[in-house]
Design a protein around this nucleic acid. Structure first.
Lengths: 328, 328
DNA sequence: CTGAAAGCGCTAACAC
DNA sequence: GTGTTAGCGCTTTCAG
């Protein structure tokens, strides 16, 4: 049996300080009171801490943001999350997080929403129509890393299309034409945007091949294909795939970038420490989070929800994993 | 002006369904009711969602864990966090997170505690005495990645001392004696534990040098020192330092592991993708999180708080960044 | 199985 | 400035 007593209430503090509950309440809300020192002492002595459930109930808000991510242990999301956390805590908000890798997205969102004033959904996987209907009763909500036409909520993403085009241009400048795209999560918005860039690139004379590389086996197969079909540059969905690719190529004694060029995407840490250092795109994860928060904040404060979409630019970071194509 | 109406209450659902509030409440608590279908319909129609502030207030608990970490965007913490999140959500708990990089730890803990049933503090930096006093009014609390003698709370950590000793033994087996420790955050428990291993290693004939390497300038200096004082193996505080070290050595045209060996610690991702692949220690981050949660859960359910400390084992992962010492 | 009623701890008029 | 009072939305006796 635990000897834990019930926590002190505002009433007990009031009695000890010889004033009424309201005075204590005011004291905590920063209003001037006659005898702050006395109150402070009573609070201290009792170890009183305001009960936030009661507060939230009375105030009708929780001052909490709910954020859903697919994988908390993915640096990509962790960085966005951190930015949201820092920005929102500046205005006294708390961060409630759900990792949707094991639960259904719907359920996770619903549960989060119950305890938060608003939601930020990171790269939701649901299809547009599901998302559209869900968003209606989740509101206020903002969507990150996914543009879903028809969804009446602010959507903030990164211009992957333009960034990938930049990467393609960079490789093409160096003489590459037969380029392979090592694709990421199929059907994800981020992947589709990158693919679009390859479509466009055909216009400029690129000869792209799309190869699935989201899991380990696919990656092996993709590498084999690339190695045998005359590919001279591999543009990967993200730094992780790029890193894995380079690592496997090394085992096959294929030198990067001398024999084949490889690029990453996102610049999430290992890209700059690799050997060779990976040419990639710097995805502005912090900005993404901050922007999402400011959109959500506006909504929470009563702004009308519209289908605003914001596309943040991302720049190419040239490092050492792409070289000029060897003369044929 | 926002057209947002107040969310429906249980009362409105009751009226629409033609029953009393209590019945709706029971319906949501899983008790059998006469007409579940009718209720479901009313709930659906109104888009009713139970107000968790009211619920928490009435029930006297929030079913929320508060977790404080120094840096949300550090894979090390992100992995622990994820494990806590997954484990706790299995029993219906929510995850409230605070990143303490910008706020004072004290404040962050206090705020978190206000909305959570218990706290998990990851690698708190406060000194033992501060922590000791804080823990008393934060209770229930569990501490992760830090053993603080005298603090009456479960403390779960990893046996860095033994693991580092294992790494030292491995390098010594390969003939190394002059080894340098590239230290991490000074005064942190994790760093102190690792240092202890070097003390012990002297007994076995190791000739260790401790070099600060927590920031970029220190790292450069440490590398210079190591290169000029006959060091043959660098054991780093973590994989990030190891990775950075290897990357800088490469620029200096010093080959790893041919000319100098390097080890990492934690195995948090880039270690296995590096070139060379980094010999390191696999820190059981997931277990750490799960264990912390199960300790906290017991406390929340009324267990007596004691100064239990759990030390999880971590194993050495031999890869390619350590080679036998070249014959002198 | 169901309804009526009494709060959970706090805030915000309102009257002093 | 301060006390009194009336709920916020829900759960849970208690009596049917």
């Amino acid at each position: 049996m635990a000897g834990s007593k019930a926590p002190p209430t505002i009433q007990e503090v009031a009695e000890l300080a010889g004033v009424s509950k309201s005075t204590i309440s005011r004291y905590f809300s920063g209003f001037p009171v006659r005898n702050p020192e006395q109150i402070r002492a009573a609070v201290e002595r009792l170890g009183y801490r305001p009960n936030s459930a009661a507060r939230d109930l009375k105030n009708g808000r929780t001052r909490t943001v709910g954020v859903a991510v697919r994988d908390l242990a993915d640096l990509y999301f962790a960085r966005i999350l951190r930015a949201i956390g820092l920005a929102s805590s500046e205005v006294g908000f708390h961060l409630l997080v759900a990792d949707t890798s094991l639960t259904s997205e719907r359920l996770a969102y619903e549960t989060l929403r119950q305890r938060a004033d608003g939601l930020i959904l990171c790269a939701p996987q649901l299809d547009d129509s599901e998302l559209e209907s869900l968003v209606d009763d989740l509101r206020p909500v903002v969507i990150v890393d996914r543009l879903a036409p028809g969804v009446r909520a602010p959507q903030v993403g990164v211009d992957f299309y333009a960034a990938m085009l930049g990467l393609i241009a960079h490789t093409m400048d160096l003489g590459h034409r037969r380029i392979a795209y090592f694709a990421g999560p199929p059907r994800s918005w981020g992947d589709r945007e990158r693919r679009r860039a390859f479509e466009t690139a055909k216009t400029f004379g690129a000869i792209p091949t799309i190869l699935e590389a989201a899991d380990s086996d696919q990656l092996d197969a993709a590498i084999n294909t690339a190695l045998s079909d005359g590919t001279t540059a591999i543009l990967s969905f993200d730094d992780f795939i790029a890193s894995s690719t380079i690592s496997r190529l090394r085992k096959l004694d294929v030198s990067v970038p001398d024999e084949i060029s490889v690029t990453g995407f996102d610049d999430v840490g290992y890209a700059s420490l690799s050997n060779p250092e990976i040419t990639t795109v710097r995805t502005p994860l912090g900005d993404l989070g901050e922007r999402a928060w400011s959109e959500l904040r506006a909504l929470i404060e009563g702004a009308e929800a519209t289908a605003t979409s914001v596309l943040l630019p991302a720049e190419v970071v040239v490092r050492a994993s792409v070289a000029a194509i060897a003369k044929a």
